[in-house]
Design a protein around this nucleic acid. Structure first.
Lengths: 253, 253
DNA sequence: CGTGGAGTTGACAAAGATCAATACTAGTGG
DNA sequence: CCACTAGTATTGATCTTTGTCAACTCCACG
């Protein structure tokens, strides 16, 4: 068994970072999807799920590949099976602002599809990523009228809005170290690790910087300050929160 | 005719800032509302409008009064007939962050009502404000199923989200003078003045500061810098944008 | 004509960006 | 297997932006 098949799971993963994503690979049925329950597809009927299964396209993206870009038309939704994706905007002088990092179970592109507008964001694979892509024709019928799917998507929308406004206040009022701490706490929570567990954050310093709106040097220094205060332990990309409570308290929320 | 009746319009306005808002004053019918066409009630049927008319409560808020507060349950929606309202959150150490300033025709509270969650925001009258308040019982039937109202509200939601994300990038990447300029341009656009027209911004320096996430002193100095560059003319609360194009270009958008 | 709140100004301090030099590390091609 | 190379991480020095504090002005209003 060579290197290629080792890490790929049930299908070999192209080892080249530059490899084009493969389409039309056979995908596991939605009914069996571990992430379905919590997500917007949570209470679709078996028939509806089957229609998704027939239409969906399973594809893999290597780290660094772009899933979609600002300005592209949205032709369907992306459902993340595994891996992490960063959603960002490009701002002043080409600078990146990461809006959020999403993982398994998250649904992308639904906003652009609902609005029938081009994407406003970029989506890029942070790690190798498996995606179920559901073309618009397959999902539009499920959005009709009083569907549970539609109202779940509206809830998602409201959650995102709440989150964006929350972060606006943070960006406006918090210092960089505080934003960094909040970011780490949010990562911890979202990646679902229990308190005190080591959280491996698979992001470069630059990417963390793009998340919290700071220079990478500032991130490095912030990590060191938190380390010296014994709130976290930072060793390269392995960052562990030592005391969630004390970190929270330090933020004087 | 005494002072009270002079400025109140067709109904006298209590002169005390602390006056309680009056309820159950007779309101003009929705059909005649100048702002209806553009707003979410744009294509309701005459019957539906009549049902709103029957239910709605017309009320006035003096400058400084609170329309609603974080944590309150949302029992209906507010439709602004005249005046300006600031929507804000309270963040670190009680500091205010104004999220947006809304004027005639804007609908408030619809988010909390849709989500059936308490308010996340504060709303405060910047000027004296006339409000049509529509209780939840009256508006809920119109939200059923494939109504135009529901989808219009979802569109509003998406607009707000887009705006919030846009501003997140600004807050992260722009310097205070640039945020100030963008704010002035946005005010200009939203208050609907033609290019070059003097825009009277009825906000204190502190309020502008709370909008752009800066200290009031920084706002004052920013205004002076823009003034010296002959991009604006700032005299007290009368601020005029002299050259929208040059201001935009200066922002290197 | 005070009095209080908003606006303005200057001096200073703190936070963070930028620049430059150096160390580390993983993937590449012999 | 190893040296090479490009990208990433770290560190120190310096400069810019912005916040903070304190004094002072200017009105509006009683």
């Amino acid at each position: 068994m060579n290197k290629k098949t080792q890490k790929g799971g049930f299908l070999p993963l192209e080892s080249q970072r530059t490899a084009r994503a493969r389409n039309r690979i056979e995908a596991p049925p939605c009914v069996d999807c571990l992430h379905r329950e919590k997500g917007p597809f949570g209470n679709l009927s078996p028939q509806e799920l089957a229609s998704l299964d027939r239409a969906k396209i399973f594809s893999r993206f290597a780290r660094g590949q772009i899933l979609f870009q600002e300005g592209n038309p949205a032709l369907g939704v992306h459902c993340i099976r595994s891996g992490l994706v960063k959603i960002y905007k490009i701002g002043v002088a080409g600078r990146v602002q990461i809006l959020r990092i999403v993982g398994p179970g998250s649904l992308l592109s639904y906003r652009a599809l609902l609005a029938e507008e081009p994407y406003e964001h970029y989506a890029e694979a942070i790690t190798d990523v498996d995606i179920c892509y559901i073309p618009g024709q397959a999902i539009r019928p499920l959005l009709k009228a009083p569907s549970s799917l539609y109202s779940r998507l509206v809830s998602l929308l409201m959650d995102e809005l709440e989150d964006a406004e929350e972060r606006l206040v943070e960006f406006s009022q918090r210092k960089s170290d505080e934003r960094l701490s909040l970011f780490l706490l949010a990562c911890c929570e979202k990646l679902g690790f229990a308190d005190g567990q080591p959280v491996e954050i698979p992001l470069s310093r630059q990417e963390i910087a793009d998340c919290i709106g700071a220079a990478p040097e500032t991130v490095i220094r912030g990590l060191r300050r938190l380390h010296r205060k014994k709130l976290i332990r930072a060793e390269g990309r392995k960052i562990k929160i030592l005391d969630t409570d004390r970190l929270n308290k330090w933020l004087q929320i």
